[in-house]
């Protein structure tokens, strides 16, 4: 009976065998492709995550502090450093009674900024990226600073 079928449609059996053979040969390739697609999806979501609770808390704290720091940026008492932090540029612009408060403000801001860079790196599973993230931020803080703010460029302070 089977021999009759073979004679009638010999190509069908061959096709089945060929398909099977192809599957055996290419199943590794299929697995690799599936794995590749999955990993591509992971990489496609290459946006850095900045919404972990730790980062959000630091952002909120910095947002509140910005209202206090903003007049000092404008007056030039505080400037943006080249390494992504803030520094007291000209303490003489602030009344003596407020100088210790200003120092504390700058110190807290820098602590938060360090936490922010570290937090973003950790949130994305690459704590070693902290330095790169800090460099990126340093550039963007200065680029986005308002006109009149003091910014540090090539080691020199300049009014933007």
């Amino acid at each position: 009976m089977s021999s009759i079928i073979k004679i009638r449609k010999p190509w069908l059996g061959k096709l089945q065998l060929f398909t099977l053979d192809c599957y055996h040969n290419f199943k590794h390739l299929i697995f690799v492709m599936i794995f590749g697609l999955l990993s591509m999806q992971v990489h496609a979501a290459a946006d850095l995550d900045v919404n972990t609770p730790a980062v959000a808390a630091v952002k909120a704290s910095m947002q509140n502090r910005h209202q206090l720091l903003s007049p000092h940026y404008l007056s030039g008492a505080v400037g943006l450093t080249a390494d992504g932090f803030v520094a007291v540029k000209d303490a003489g612009l602030v009344p003596l009674s407020q100088r210790s408060a200003l120092t504390a403000l700058v110190k807290d801001e820098n602590a938060d900024r360090a936490k922010l860079y570290q937090g973003i790196a950790a949130a994305n599973g690459h704590p070693e990226w902290e330095g790169e993230i800090q460099r990126t931020f340093a550039q963007r803080w200065i680029d986005r600073a308002q006109a009149g703010w003091m910014v540090q460029r090539d080691g020199q302070w300049a009014r933007k």
């Binding site: 946006d47 850095l48 900045v50 990226w129 990126t136 931020f137 963007r140 803080w141 986005r144």
Partner: peptide, 10 residues
């Protein structure tokens, strides 16, 4: 991506 994230945070 880092630059984009930085802009968003700033």
């Amino acid at each position: 991506a880092a630059e984009k994230a930085a802009d968003k945070v700033i």
